[in-house]
Design a binder for these strands. Structure first.
Lengths: 224, 224
DNA sequence: CGCTGTCTTGATCACTATCAAACCGAGTGG
DNA sequence: CCACTCGGTTTGATAGTGATCAAGACAGCG
């Protein structure tokens, strides 16, 4: 990122915000005036159906941008909730339009982010629709792991993963019980172990094979 | 759209393209140099897993933009296939960058489109994950219907829907047989009938209720 | 007219949900 | 320091939704 870009970005940084685990950051349907970039901590995006069932859309890790939908479309299509204490960089919604007028490279990055997010959701859709429970869990663990690697969170074959099994279940459209049993299977087979908020992968290749994950070159994601 | 915007857009229109039903327009993984806007006809976006199973991501109707992902990210995350004869407006990929530099309003529209698409995929995800087969089919029919209404394709409680049951099944992660039986149920209950390429809704409210569809104000989508 | 693709319907099977209860560690207050 | 609660995890038993298998119907087409 060039100096002027940094400067342009910094100019619209309103401030920083720290939220505790469990705090809702954005609410579905709300007209949020702010955008956030995650500096540290993790959370989830989710929607709730009228029947009360919850779908987790994505897990949010450091570097992710939150609230673009609300800023662009005027209304959030999902809620965002912190799962650990999170530090957020706050931008004003007005920054968006300024980017488009004065910082085309930054604006392009925004579109890039949206397109990438769309790509990911497409893959998730294919998971819920076409993968079995075992394949789905394997897929999710590998993808989370890949993000962990990119963020340098992995040490000793292990990375922090401060979510609940219920979160993963809701992300994959599985019941909590079945998710638990599938995880237990991986643990018994010594492929992957997720406990006490840490994920440990001992056989990534096998897990990728099970989850039908096509390895993809890591792409640097633009940071806002 | 202002005159200058139209002019800016027209300038990058490379030409028009007509494809027959069944033709692949873009292929997953390919590095496409083109963007398309659908002038007429319908098609589907889909991905294929390693095990051969297919997931339909969205149905493509007139006005939709195709290939943004490839243009922005360099590689398509899904394939696009025509289901009827389609007329396409072709743009060069270079137009994208020019938009960002010289037509911020158009660039903003692109981001809007990407964010909207993301929003829709989120809803689809919630469908596959949290809705029963009956709810899912109802949801899909209502959403398609709403798009039909917006495009003025509906007349006499009926609109063209030139897809196969297999397409819908692959979109919802259901088996062909089960999709068929669910559709048959709606037909028997006189709620919705889809045959010979036309969808007829006789009880939209009931269908929306079943599908847990929250009515949403129709938003004009920007056209490229 | 035989083929081929799509839709339809019936029978059977299995993956995954649901229900229920126990377990476990961390707080909390008496 | 122990009883109690609470959120999350684990395990077993049972049920059901939707997949799979199989075959027939029907229309368009070379």
């Amino acid at each position: 990122m060039s100096d002027t870009e940094v400067e342009q970005t910094q100019r619209f940084k309103v401030g920083e915000l720290t939220v505790e685990a469990g705090t809702p950051i954005l609410t579905e349907g709300a007209n949020s005036a702010q955008l956030f970039t995650v500096l540290s901590g993790m959370g989830i995006r989710h929607t709730t159906l009228e029947n009360g069932r919850r779908q987790v859309l994505t897990f949010i890790l450091p570097g992710d941008l939150i609230g673009l939908q609300g800023a662009v479309m005027g209304e959030m299509g999902h809620s965002v909730e912190a799962r650990t204490r999170m530090r957020l960089c706050v931008f004003d919604r007005a920054a968006l339009w300024d980017f488009f007028k004065n910082a085309p490279a930054r604006a392009y990055d925004l579109t890039w982010i949206a397109a990438t997010e769309e790509h990911f959701l497409g893959e998730a859709l294919a998971t819920l629709g076409q993968r079995t429970a075992e394949q789905a869990v394997a897929w999710a663990l590998v993808r989370l792991w890949q993000r962990g690697v990119a963020l340098d969170l992995v040490e000793n074959n292990s990375m922090p993963l401060p979510f609940r099994q219920q979160d993963l279940a809701d992300a994959l459209g599985l019941s909590l019980v079945h998710t638990n049993k599938t995880l237990a299977k991986f643990r018994t087979k010594q492929i992957a172990s997720w406990r006490d908020g840490r994920l440990t992968l001992t056989d990534i290749d096998e897990l990728s094979r099970i989850g039908l994950v096509d390895e993809q070159k890591a792409v640097r994601r633009p940071l806002l």
